[in-house]
Design a protein around this nucleic acid. Structure first.
Length: 821
RNA sequence: GCCCCUCUGGCGGAACUGGUAGACGCGCUGGAUUCAAAAUCCAGUUCCUUCGGGAGUGCCGGUUCGAUUCCGGCGGGGGGCACCA
């Protein structure tokens, strides 16, 4: 029997699918819609095995839903703006566009080789002017609607990539791409008002709108948005203290523990607080202290080790509820980015405040008494008391529990007109300006006379200049000789273009809508976009739990606000798949620097128990099993796999064994197992050519001896269906193995099985494997004599009558122990 | 520090709402085929065992007729947030 030959079979079906436009989706179709989307790739050069896993999952869903009678939209495109293209330009001189589109061509070919059922007619790259012109339109609309604004503020500056980063893009105080410690700079930047949507973004996490999302992603977003309720109040300067200019009203403070107001012993403001700057103008020591704080690291360790430090200002604040006078400090542990950038210190019940108070010898009056403690003897030692208890030493709050006291304190402060109960969010507005060339230009013009003027609609798109100088760091748009010089659209005088481009996360915040509908003259056709949205199944990596997934949620709301869409939640169901990991190999020759010692999997060979360098024969150190990365060389190329075993084997293995949400370790024996299965299926099918032609499965044709095989067949159908529906691809695959094993046994053991039942089994098997190994399935379908493409064949249906088991084996338990069989 | 997830053979992992622990795959062992190997096929494979059985799902305890599953505590691994007032 000839072995299955994917090298011939796979291209054959690619051609046939392509010439039949098998996967092109029409908007108007009487069937119910189903939109399945995988996070589109950045065209970095080549497809890696993680992409294969991601797209194989989406493809299973797409092909399965199609077989179930849905009109499936399954598009693909390119998240094509970004730093790597510019870095390549700096290193090799190739223009970012050339580099990017070249990569896209390669990767498109690789994806096609995988046999993924994409509707390629909707493909676009976010760097296409045809795409980003609409992004500029959207931005102008947002601006008009007050959702976008420009302001000077303290931002995260990445000194390596020479650009600003959003808060979400700073990980452990380092740039998410460059890994460089982020500096803080005061710059004028564009922002999108994501904070306006904070409450709704938060509410939707719990009110059922995102019931199709994993709990952990919802939780991460909830923590990121970080809602807390508290009291925002003014602390006025005490008699005898002259309020600095502009601060007549005092210092505004936010607290979640207004119950501890009587425990206040000092006021502390952030080094970045405006009052600190004002005081520093006439106080060199204050200025010096602020400068020291600014230069301190923001890394995890730096913060952990940083000692609480303060600088005492010559100011005094009056306690609002009693006659105490509180000192005012600039303190290094107070953040400008949260609340009001100023706090009242309550050392008895906050560890940081306590550390600070001990250092500067400030009073530590306790106001919350733990249950069982004596008011007369309760004191605070080295640890603040943050637990439950009853208020004391607190006038009208005495005797209340904490919650009760919080409410009472807020009410009191509101009554005396010095503050109000407020809700605070950790979430900051989304800074979208990037000082880079390879991004979507922000359509604004700076005019000395008119201020910041939007680019008129008729002048869109603002296209990137083709020529740019990448030989030195910095923003090539800003130093371009002519590009930024334009007349002001309002007064006609000389003006300057905005030279910042959008954060690339803006590009990926609405691409799913553009896939659904791409009219020439506007971002989307509302009716068509509404038809397709929300995405029914979105699949991607957990690393986007906060970044992309939060931005896209906001963008949908903004687009809805401006009348482009009707949905606020773009992704009805989300699945976050695990990574593909692989062993790392380190050459034992330690004379070379570490980063040159990593070896590719293909450069090592197993010799018995040992692993050695294939070239030198020297032993190799087997390192940790990690996410595949170029730097550690623990990568395998999907092309090489497809070359050896075919795309189907790669797809099958990526989905077998490990649950899809978990990491999967790439092993050569795993792919070989997949290859073995493909041949076993092919053997079973090719032994029965024309099996579907000889019988009519639409009419009953089974005899009494067929029942065992039919029960196995229908159990497989029911099981695989249920497993796919629940994203349990590993189990679906296990069931297909069981089915095949049972089928083979039947073939050899019982000649009594009718052709009809055998055809039924083979037909079901072929259709069940079709979402996983589509080329093999088509080849089988053709061999069996099935009609048309198997990708157009309906999903098999399990007959409930055949699912009931005739016999049940009962375990006998005596006193909870199993006895007998 | 706070929050979340996770822990099952040599390995990846099954076990729906508590009811025969280890499906399926990998690996390994034995056999068939072969001049030989690869490939393929068949059988076995949680551990211990005096072959009667016994033990077993990170550890300790609890609830239950019965716990991988539920509860409490401890430990290992992973993740998110983090001087957030």
């Amino acid at each position: 029997m000839p072995r299955y030959n994917p090298k011939e079979v796979e291209p054959k079906w690619h051609d046939r699918w392509s010439s039949a436009n098998a996967f092109e989706t029409r908007d108007k179709d009487p069937k119910p819609k189903y939109y399945v989307l995988e996070m589109f790739p950045y065209p970095s050069g080549r497809i890696h095995i993680g992409h294969v896993r991601n797209y194989a999952m989406g493809d299973v869903i797409a092909r399965y839903k199609r077989a179930c009678g849905y009109n499936v939209l399954h598009p693909m495109g390119w998240d094509a703006f970004g730093m790597p293209a510019e870095n390549a330009a700096m290193q090799t001189g190739a223009h970012p566009a050339q580099w990017t589109y070249g990569n896209i061509d390669i990767m498109r070919g690789q994806l096609k080789q995988m046999g993924l059922a994409f509707d390629w007619s909707r493909e676009f790259a976010t760097c296409d002017p045809d795409y980003y012109v609409h992004q500029q339109r959207l931005f102008l609309q947002f601006w008009d609607a007050g959702l976008a604004y420009r302001k000077e503020s303290l931002v995260n500056w990445d000194p390596v990539d020479q650009t600003v980063l959003a808060n979400e893009q700073v990980i452990d105080g380092k740039g998410w791409r460059s890994g460089a410690p982020v500096e803080r700079r005061n710059l004028s930047q564009w922002f999108l008002k994501i904070t306006d949507a904070a409450e709704d973004l938060l509410a939707a996490l719990d009110d059922g709108r995102l019931s199709g999302w994993p709990d952990n992603v919802r939780l991460m977003q909830k923590n990121w948005i970080g809602k807390s309720k508290g009291l925002q109040m003014k602390f006025r300067f005490a008699d005898g203290t002259k309020a600095p200019e502009g601060f007549d009203a005092g210092v505004e403070v936010f607290t979640t523990r207004p119950d501890t107001l009587y425990g206040a012993s000092f006021i502390a403001i952030s080094p970045d607080h405006p009052l600190a700057a004002t005081m520093a103008q006439s106080d060199d020591k204050a200025a010096q202290f602020i400068a020291e704080c600014a230069s301190a690291g923001t890394s995890e360790e730096a913060i952990e080790k940083a000692e609480k430090r303060g600088y005492k200002l010559p100011l005094e604040i009056a306690h609002p509820l009693d006659d105490r006078r509180l000192p005012v400090y600039i303190a290094n542990f107070v953040l400008i980015g949260y609340g009001t950038g100023a706090i009242f210190g309550c050392p008895a019940h906050d560890q940081r405040d306590l550390d600070f108070a001990r250092k500067y010898d400030l009073p530590v009056p306790p106001v919350v008494l733990p249950e069982g403690a004596e008011a007369s003897s309760f004191t605070i030692g080295a640890e603040a008391y943050t637990g439950p208890g009853t208020l004391f030493n607190s006038d009208f709050l005495d005797g209340m529990a904490i919650d009760e006291a919080i409410a009472a304190a807020i009410k009191k402060i509101e009554t005396i007109g010095q503050g109000e109960g407020v809700t605070q969010y950790r979430l900051r507005d989304w800074g979208v300006s990037r000082q880079r060339y390879w991004g979507c230009p922000i359509p604004a013009i700076h005019c000395d006379a008119c201020g910041i003027v939007p680019v008129p609609e008729k002048d869109l798109p603002v296209k990137l200049p083709d020529e740019a100088d990448f030989s030195v760091p910095g923003n090539p748009l800003d130093r371009h000789p002519t590009w930024k010089h334009v007349p002001c659209p309002r007064c006609g005088n000389d003006a300057r273009r905005e030279t910042d481009t959008f954060d690339t996360f803006v590009d990926s915040s609405w691409y799913f809508a553009r896939f659904a509908s791409q009219p020439k003259d506007r971002p989307v056709d509302k009716q068509t976009a509404d038809h397709w949205l929300p995405v029914d199944q979105y699949i991607g990596g957990i690393e986007h739990a906060i970044l992309h997934l939060l931005y896209a949620r906001y963008f949908s709301r903004a687009m809805k606000h401006c009348g482009y869409l009707s949905v606020d939640e773009p992704f009805a169901n989300l699945f976050t798949q695990g990574m593909v990991v692989h062993e790392t190999y380190l050459d034992s020759d330690d004379s070379k620097p570490l980063k040159e010692r990593w070896l590719l999997p293909e450069d090592v060979v197993r010799k018995g128990d040992r692993i050695v360098n294939a070239q030198t024969g020297k032993p190799v150190i087997v390192g940790a099993i990690e996410k595949m990365s170029k730097s550690k060389k623990n990568v395998v190329s999907p092309e090489a796999i497809a070359e050896t075993y075919g795309a189907d084997a790669a797809r099958w293995f990526m989905l077998s064994d490990s649950p899809p949400e978990r990491d999967v370790e790439w092993t050569d024996s795993g792919v070989e197992g997949a290859w073995k299965l493909i041949n076993r299926i092919w053997d079973a099918v090719s032994a029965a050519p024309g099996a579907l032609k000889n019988v009519d499965l639409a009419k009953p044709g089974a005899n009494n001896d067929d029942k065992p095989l039919r029960q196995i067949t229908h159990a497989a159908i029911a099981g695989v269906t249920d497993d796919i529906e629940h994203f349990r691809f590993n189990k679906a695959i296990a069931r297909i193995y069981e089915f095949l094993n049972a089928l083979k046994k039947t073939n050899s053991a019982s000649a009594a099985v009718s052709d009809w039942a055998r055809a039924e089994a083979l037909s079901a098997l072929t259709r069940l494997i079709a979402p996983f190994t589509p080329h093999l399935a088509e080849e089988c379908w053709e061999t069996l004599g099935g009609e048309g493409f198997v990708c157009d064949a309906p999903w098999p249906k399990a007959d409930p009558a055949l699912l009931a088991k005739d016999e049940v084996v009962l375990g006998v338990q005596v006193n909870g122990k199993r006895r007998g069989e």
